[in-house]
């Protein structure tokens, strides 16, 4: 499976209710050491209710300029949240199903 298979697919909760689309996949570079860096470990997916388009870098809280562009992209992605790998039940060909009682984390990055 490659990232393109996941990006843009619908996300539903266990009752089949549509929550949004996969607009990003988060990785942490903290797994077992590789040749140069550690290997990347998938942390979870970012679900955006309205659009699967890119955040263009504005998922980071510190990036606020140019102001109108930042506002526009934040507004487009309003209500988006991060779901951890552990809370994903199935990544199917059409849609991603979440486990019951999943936790929606803040999707913005701190730096």
């Amino acid at each position: 499976m490659i990232l393109t298979d996941v990006l843009g697919s619908d996300v539903v909760d266990n009752s089949g209710q549509r929550l949004g689309e996969v607009s990003d996949v988060r990785f942490a570079v903290d797994a077992s050491p590789g040749q140069l860096l550690s290997k990347a470990r998938m942390v979870g997916i970012v679900v955006s209710p309205r659009t699967a388009s890119s955040f263009l870098g504005y998922e980071r809280r510190g990036i606020t300029q140019p102001w109108p562009v930042a506002q526009l992209l934040r507004w487009r992605h309003r209500g988006s949240f991060l779901v951890l790998w552990e809370d994903i039940a199935v990544i199917g060909p059409r849609e991603v199903v979440l486990r019951p009682g999943f936790t929606a984390y803040e999707s913005t990055l701190a730096f």
Binding site: L56, G57, G62, P66, V69
Partner: peptide, 9 residues
């Protein structure tokens, strides 16, 4: 994209 990246610390 140039404008966006030119703003990215």
């Amino acid at each position: 994209p140039i404008l966006i990246v030119a703003n990215d610390p």
